[in-house]
Amino acid sequence: MHSLTRRSLALIPLVALFTTELSAQRTYDQDKMAANYAEMKTHAWFKDGSWVTDFDAAKAEAKKTGKPIFAYFTRTYAA
């Protein structure tokens, strides 16, 4: 019994690590994520504002025009 308890205690860090890994790898419904992103693109702030969503394209445009990049970090998934 005593050694079982010790073995169980020794497993705690592993279990904790596994649980953290699981939460970090939380899966998201990909159809919903794609729909959310598509919906965002219909919002007035986005479609009327000439926003670029490709970072390489934004950098290339900044190089071409000499303008700085105004980067707005947002998300379309729920926490």
Partner: peptide, 17 residues
């Protein structure tokens, strides 16, 4: 005056940026 870049985090697997 600027290049407006929306850095959107989507959780779409494999999506660049």
């Amino acid at each position: 005056n600027a290049i407006l870049f929306a850095a959107v985090m989507t959780k779409i697997e494999g999506r660049k940026d």
